[in-house]
Design a protein around this nucleic acid. Structure first.
Lengths: 140, 140
DNA sequence: TGGGAAGTTTAGAATCATTATAAACTTCTT
DNA sequence: AAGAAGTTTATAATGATTCTAAACTTCCCA
């Protein structure tokens, strides 16, 4: 686990990405990376910030989530037309998506074997392979 | 190919789903199913209808796409936060998603082998497994 | 060390896909 | 042929996200 000094990593990544370590970015990074992996929406992070007395506008939350995604600190997941999720786990892995609750759950890369991928269409390069297992809560 | 009489199927499915075969539904079905598989957005289908002199409101296009999806005539694909695609190919298969152009391309089920799926979280049932290979156009 | 350039944040407006509303219209059944 | 049920539609509403432009910070170097 390299979570021991979460900020060292964040600071370094911000530097790499030419993003100034502002109060807002650092506070959001703290919320995002301090406690294990999570899947969070912009709105939810904004509320969490408010609850933690961090004053940040929703626009900044959106900007920051996108900048962190570009910098490789987050991964954006689209499974549901109504909102985007941001995953703090950027390593290779997949997801269960609970269609009723809207919850996402990680699946470690080793738990799914995708073999025999077809070649990428000519003139293109594979950016990512997403496997989403959509599950529904059993009625009973 | 069972495309020889596309309407027999549509009519039957509409009947099964308790949907009246209205002028609008039939016209949209014709546009959707008459020429091989396609991936289309509501907006695009609405424009196509207009171009074909079929008068349908956008609200009806949305309603119809959702009803057809429930009836199993279409499959909804979410790969991009900004719009939903509807796929006229409802058989088991996967997709390439061209991130730049927003285009979707089918991958036959046999071309990808997903083995060793983890068990669905308890209390849930797998509704579908989506594999999306995101590709980017090579710059060059 | 101070001042300006560059980068950042923000409130609020704008956008855009989608959904809701409720009145007018069709279709079905008898 | 008539009423009930189902549909369509224009229009308004919603909600997530992005834009704008002004105020604010941070950085840099003379």
């Amino acid at each position: 686990m390299e979570t021991s000094r979460p900020f060292a990593r964040v600071l370094e990544q911000l530097r790499k990405a030419d993003l100034r370590p502002t109060r807002q970015r650092l506070a959001l990074a703290k919320l995002l990376f301090e406690n294990g992996y999570r899947h969070i929406t912009a709105e939810a992070l904004h509320e969490e910030a408010a609850a933690a007395d961090v004053r940040v506008s929703l626009a900044t939350v959106y900007n920051t989530l996108h900048q962190f995604t570009e910098a490789g600190l987050l991964r954006e997941i689209v499974v549901d037309g109504t909102r985007s999720y941001f995953d703090t786990n950027t390593s290779d892995h997949h997801h269960f998506f609970h269609e009723v609750s809207g919850r996402l759950e990680d699946i470690a890369a080793e738990q799914i074997v995708v073999s025999e991928l077809p070649p990428a269409p000519s003139g293109t390069t594979v950016a990512r392979v997403d496997v989403i297992i959509r599950v529904t809560e059993d009625t009973q």
